[in-house]
Amino acid sequence: MTGKSRRIELRAAPHVKRGVNVETIMLHVVLALLPIAGFSVIQYGLSALALIMATTVSCLLSERLFSRLSGQGNTLADWSATITGLLLALTLPPSFPLWMAAVAGFAAIALGKVLFGGLGYNVFNPALVGRAFVQAAFPVAITTWAPAFFPGRFTGFIPTTFTMPLMTPPGLAEWLHQHVVDGFTGATPLARWKFENHVASAGDLLSGVATASAGETSALLILACGLYLAARKFMDWRIPVAVIGSAALVALAFHLVDPGRYPAPVFVLLSGGLMLGAVFMATDMATSPVTATGVWIYGAVIGVVTVMIRYFGGLTEGVMYAILIGNALVPLIDQYTQPRVFGARGRKA
């Protein structure tokens, strides 16, 4: 892929009336992400807006720089860097310092995409590569959370947002003390479950008050946007169904064996980034399998690994690594699920 739009003009019947190209699909994904981004701004105010802009601008600038260096022409028009920037912001904590967000955007494009040869050649979802990089680089900042709907969010910023580049963000304790409703623990529902065995109610998780990354709490909104993309056939609906379904099944099995220790599946589905990951990140076309059977396997792997990391890993949230592991398996899955050519005899075992 050269980054230019390609319309296939000459082909045998049946003739497709309207060519769907990369730009159209990507543009619709951007449109589907906007409501989620908008909701995160309602939840976290100006800081979330600044965060979204920082990652997006950083991704676009990096993309421009590398496309110029490699002589690929202008690749900004395919919208993929915009998607990476938006998704990246939605997976970061709203209090994340902007300079770190810019580093994440650069890492996403440079390590996640350009290194492999650009759009279509990348093995891993670029936004998740960027997030994994800053998770490893700044483990404290990426687990510092701000409460949703805090008063004064449209008139001021969370103090960590404008940390000087290269400097440590200030502690949030004092600011939280002044601004925040009682009962904010600074821990995500998943962390509270893991360390305190406290299971948040579905109502809390759905209403967006749960502590989380910028775009993770609006499960219903994410599903609605996903439905739109699936209905327009810009997204393979099997992937989110497989991810969510397998995660729910595994969680149900654990819950039935030991209800005191393992929460009900609804908690597993609504907490953390499972919805966002299943709908918008696992479905990235360049990093998911091409065969129908492969897609089911891929989704199931992501769902199961997510629950395994959450239940038995050292981390509280496992969606990011689960999707990256799923991405890494894609070439293998594709190879073993190739459909048999009609009339050809199967390989002998």
Partner: peptide
Amino acid sequence: FGPDFQPWVVMVLPPGGFF
């Protein structure tokens, strides 16, 4: 950079060496 510098932990971990 003074005492407020934010270390990039990943750089002293093995992946940092590769990067």
